Amino acid sequence: MTTRYLSISEVSERLGVTRANIHRRADLPEPDAVIGTVRGWKAETVDEWWANANHSPGRLPREVEEARRNKTR
C-alpha cells in the first residue's frame, strides 16, 4: 500500500489557512518524508500537531470538524 503525504499547499488547505501562515509557523512538525526539497506530512501528523498547536481556539482541520459533525448525527 502506498503512503499518502500532504504537500504544504495541501496542509494549508486542510487547515483552512494560507500557505504563508503555514510557512510563518516555527512549530511546524518535522516532515514525515522529504524527497529532494519537497516536504510531506501524513494527515495524522498534521491533525495531531494542529490539535495541540498554539493557535486561535476552536479551529480544527475541516475533515476533523466534518467527522465530528457526522458522529453526532
Rank of each mutant, 00 (worst) to 15 (best):
M1F: 07
M1T: 06
M1G: 10
M1E: 07
T2Y: 12
T2S: 13
R4L: 06
R4N: 03
L6H: 02
L6S: 00
S7W: 09
S7I: 03
S7R: 08
I8L: 11
E10M: 04
V11L: 07
V11E: 02
S12W: 00
S12T: 02
S12I: 00
E13Y: 04
E13I: 01
E13G: 05
R14M: 10
R14L: 12
L15V: 08
L15R: 04
L15W: 11
L15M: 14
G16C: 13
G16V: 11
G16P: 10
V17G: 02
V17A: 06
V17W: 04
T18L: 08
T18K: 06
A20N: 09
A20Y: 14
A20V: 12
N21R: 09
N21S: 10
N21K: 05
N21H: 07
I22R: 05
I22Y: 05
I22H: 08
H23E: 15
H23W: 14
H23F: 14
H23S: 12
R24L: 14
R24T: 13
R24K: 15
R24M: 14
R25G: 01
R25W: 08
D27M: 01
D27I: 01
D27G: 02
L28Q: 02
L28T: 03
L28H: 00
L28C: 01
P29E: 09
E30Y: 04
E30P: 01
P31M: 07
P31V: 11
P31Q: 06
P31N: 08
D32G: 06
D32W: 00
D32V: 01
D32S: 06
V34G: 03
I35T: 12
G36D: 04
T37Y: 05
T37M: 10
T37F: 00
V38M: 13
R39I: 02
G40P: 07
G40R: 09
G40N: 08
G40E: 12
W41T: 07
W41P: 03
A43I: 14
E44V: 12
T45N: 02
V46G: 11
V46C: 06
D47T: 12
E48C: 11
E48D: 15
E48P: 00
W49L: 09
W50M: 13
A51K: 11
A51S: 15
N52L: 15
N52F: 14
A53Q: 11
A53D: 07
N54I: 15
N54L: 14
N54K: 15
H55M: 13
H55D: 13
S56R: 14
S56N: 14
S56T: 15
S56V: 15
P57E: 06
P57L: 05
R59I: 13
R59M: 10
R59K: 12
L60Q: 10
L60P: 02
L60S: 11
P61A: 13
P61G: 05
P61E: 07
R62Y: 00
R62I: 00
R62F: 00
E63K: 09
E63Y: 00
E63D: 08
E63C: 04
E65G: 06
E65C: 11
E65D: 13
E65R: 10
E66P: 08
A67G: 06
A67S: 11
A67P: 01
R68P: 13
R68Q: 15
R69M: 09
R69N: 12
R69K: 14
N70A: 12
N70Y: 04
K71E: 11
K71M: 13
R73P: 03
R73K: 14
R73Q: 09
